[in-house]
């Protein structure tokens, strides 16, 4: 399978008052075309930082990022937005509270997007077109998050970066979003990096998984490999705990 996105030896250190936080420590990964890649780990493991590094919203201290074989390290997020889009944890905060959904959603879209295309996409996401006239505060959390998926897909980007996109939603809505993502995957070509602390959820959705801890990649592999035969102690502990906390 073709490699669409690659991170090579990425490093990022944050300054927090007087102390330094190593958020990414020599992180390397590959995302293949059409693949759903899960990034799991506990709070503070650096999984969200990795996503922001990939998006270009923050710049790595060192290391390289490539898209389709071409380096884009340090590229401004206004340009990375052409091939990747982010979906955020707090769906409400990812829309301007004063703007109607219609305008927000079209912000990232190319100029020639037709109204039919938009309505078709909303339909795929089980959203009614009349919701476009509403502001984010008037939508439910699930509707709002589906709108942000619509925005990302409509932009034409073929890589979606999802940052804990279901963790603010209840279980039933979460399951809906996950099955919608699986559904659109059949209709539209896109790849995804899916960051979540919920390993059971990632195991259902993603083809491969990366386990992170303290800013480092502990283990990576196909979901099946990792679940059935984890090699690192930390991965074993994480998976065993997750098993005890899911059905």
């Amino acid at each position: 399978m073709k490699e669409i996105l690659e991170g090579i030896h990425l490093n990022k250190i944050f300054r927090d008052g007087d102390s330094l936080v190593v958020a990414a420590n020599d992180v390397s990964f590959t995302l293949h075309e059409g693949e759903f890649l899960g990034i799991v780990g506990e709070s503070g493991c650096g999984k969200s930082t990795l996503l922001r590094l990939v998006s270009g919203l923050i710049k790595p201290d060192s290391g390289e990022l490539t898209h389709d074989g071409e380096a884009y390290t340090g590229m401004s997020p206004a340009k990375t937005g052409r091939f990747l889009q982010m979906i955020f944890q707090d769906a409400y905060a990812s829309f301007d509270p004063h703007m109607r959904m219609h305008r927000s959603i079209l912000e990232a879209a190319p100029k020639n997007v037709s109204e039919e295309e938009l309505v078709q996409l909303l339909d795929d996401l089980h959203l009614e077109a009349k919701l476009l006239e509403k502001r984010p505060g008037e939508l439910s959390g699930g509707q709002c998050q589906r709108m942000s998926i619509a925005r990302a897909i409509l932009s034409g980007a073929d890589i979606l970066l999802c940052d804990e996109i279901t963790s603010a939603l209840d279980v039933v809505t979460e399951a809906q979003i996950v099955s919608l993502l699986q559904g659109i995957r059949q209709k539209r070509e896109f790849s995804m990096m899916f960051v979540s602390h919920n390993i059971a959820l990632v195991s259902q959705l993603c083809d491969r998984m990366i386990v992170m801890h303290d800013g480092q990649i502990v283990e990576a592999g196909t979901t099946k490999e990792l679940l059935e035969n984890p090699k690192q102690e930390y991965t074993k502990k994480l998976i065993a705990s997750s098993r005890m906390q899911s059905l």
Partner: peptide
Amino acid sequence: NQSYISAAILAGKSNWYIITRHIFPN
């Protein structure tokens, strides 16, 4: 630091657009 500003940046919007259309109205 709100996500909707990040989303607008990733949408390729200029700083001037973000300041006048997103920040000022709020």
